[in-house]
Design a protein around this nucleic acid. Structure first.
Length: 411
RNA sequence: GCGCCUGUCGUCAAGCGGUUAAGACCUCGGAUUGUGGUUCCGAUAUGCAUGGGUUCGAAUCCCAUCAGGCGCCCCA
């Protein structure tokens, strides 16, 4: 036998028995998001590399070490690692800033990140996400979070934890970063290797380090004082307070997590995650926030925006696997022409029908019918002569001979 | 990129240096030439991820490679 070819590491097949789950995710997305006025958009799977470098941020891990990048005709192209940058590109390119705001878009599809696979993390994975453009008020943040919760509820997931935080605007965040670096400077040599890198690259990320020795350092009172301080400016604080009050009135349960930072550069003010306790260490099903400067950074007009993305594999991991639908009927017959005619007639009316294509023995056909269908439609010589069909309920073993018209009231 | 664990039929597995490589499920055939789901018989790995090595002898021990799992980092 020839050598077998396997799936690429970190990718996997979505097999027929699990595909119904995906249909549910997609159907509910379309249904729920359209209630909030969202329209679906589909952007290409690959884009010019520069889009992600400028969009996602070239200090991020995603851009630095996780992109599938290739050259074609002297252009550097990249398989999308996320879809916000692509949607923003399309928004700008298609002149959507001329549309009356807010512009609300949703998407679903595969994303690609070159990471070490583990539970809840593949190299090709799927996200469903939403982006809203043109509203700077906190009501937009609240609506977007509310919709995420609504969508999760529609899937039967209502025991998830919503965490929110505010990163402030570039101005006040810069101040906070400087304060944090200043107070940590004496401890720099005691930080773990990763934290020393973070100290330079992205000081906000220092806060959720899991190394015990670092945690201990962060517990020190003078450092806690900086971490716990409400560093954000008055405007940002007001935005955050309003968001919280909206969520309160809508009875969305949340916790404020001051350590919630998120790894993409484009976020400002509101960030949030929705987590599950049943997913292992990759426990976020949803992540998002506000990104008011991204559109401008990618060459568009200054446009505020909020959005989030959910990992569809992670959602599926929390959902039960639905049973595959059985056939309505399986035709048992040794007369292929008559069987085919009956099958086509019923299929045209919307029934799920199969019959034996290889003319096996009667008992074998019936055995097959009992496995795959609710009813066996027996079409033997007697039935054909009489212009009828014998219908057997395979669960109850009840059988009667009826005309094709009567058959419809049974199936 | 780093750390720990694991690779025996389509699936779940037993085996722990000398076996004919158990068993179960699935699949296929038969008992059963118009009545299934129960039952009973039978078939299906010259092969143990791949390549080396140790040994009289390797699925079993060692090394490398590949793949998978989990964790770190990061993220959905």
């Amino acid at each position: 036998m020839a050598k077998i070819i396997n799936v690429v590491k970190g990718t996997h097949d979505i097999l027929p028995q699990e595909v119904e789950q995906w249909h549910i995710l997609e159907k509910n997305a379309l249904e729920i998001f359209s209630r909030y006025g969202y329209k679906e958009i589909r952007t290409p799977i690959f884009e010019v590399t520069e889009l992600f470098a400028r969009g996602v941020g070239d200090t991020t891990d995603i851009v630095n070490k996780e992109m599938y990048t290739f050259e074609k005709s002297e252009r550097s192209l990249t398989l999308r690692p996320e879809n916000t940058a692509g949607v923003v590109r399309s928004y700008i390119e298609n002149g959507m800033s001329r549309l009356s705001p807010p512009v609300k878009l949703w998407y679903k599809g595969p994303m690609f990140r070159y990471e070490r696979p583990q539970k809840g993390r593949q190299r090709q994975f799927h996200q469903v996400g939403v982006e809203m453009f043109g509203v700077k008020e906190p009501a937009a943040d609240a609506e977007v979070i509310l919709m995420a919760v609504d969508y999760l509820k529609s899937l039967g997931l209502d025991d998830l934890e919503v965490e929110i935080n505010s990163l402030g605007c570039p101005k006040c965040r810069e101040e906070f970063k400087n304060n944090l670096k200043a107070v940590l400077k004496p401890e720099f040599d005691n930080l773990c290797e990763d934290c020393q890198k973070r100290y330079e690259k992205n000081p906000l990320r220092l806060l959720d380090c899991k190394v015990e020795s670092c945690k201990a350092i962060f517990e020190k009172p003078e450092i806690q004082k900086v971490i716990q301080s409400d560093f954000i400016c008055e405007e940002c604080a007001d935005h955050f307070a309003k968001l919280k009050s909206y969520l309160d009135t809508m009875q969305v349960k949340y916790t404020v997590n001051k350590l919630l930072v998120r790894g993409l550069d484009y976020y400002n003010r509101t960030v949030f995650e929705i987590k599950s306790n049943n997913l292992g260490s990759q426990n976020a099903v949803c992540g998002g926030g506000r990104y008011d400067s991204l559109v401008k950074n990618l060459g568009g007009e200054d446009t505020p925006a909020v959005g989030w993305a959910m990992g569809m594999e992670r959602l599926n991991a929390l959902l039960p696997v639905p049973e595959l639908k059985k056939l309505n009927g399986y035709i048992v017959s040794n007369s292929p022409v008559e069987a085919l005619e009956l099958a086509q007639k019923l299929r045209k009316e919307g029934y799920r029908i199969e019959f034996d294509l290889s003319n096996k023995k009667f008992t074998k056909q019936l055995e097959k019918a009992s496995k795959v269908a609710d009813y066996a439609l027996i079409l033997g010589e007697d039935e054909i002569k009489a212009g009828k069909v014998s219908v057997k309920n395979l669960a109850t073993s009840e059988q009667k001979t009826v005309s094709i018209e009567e058959l419809r009231s049974i199936l």
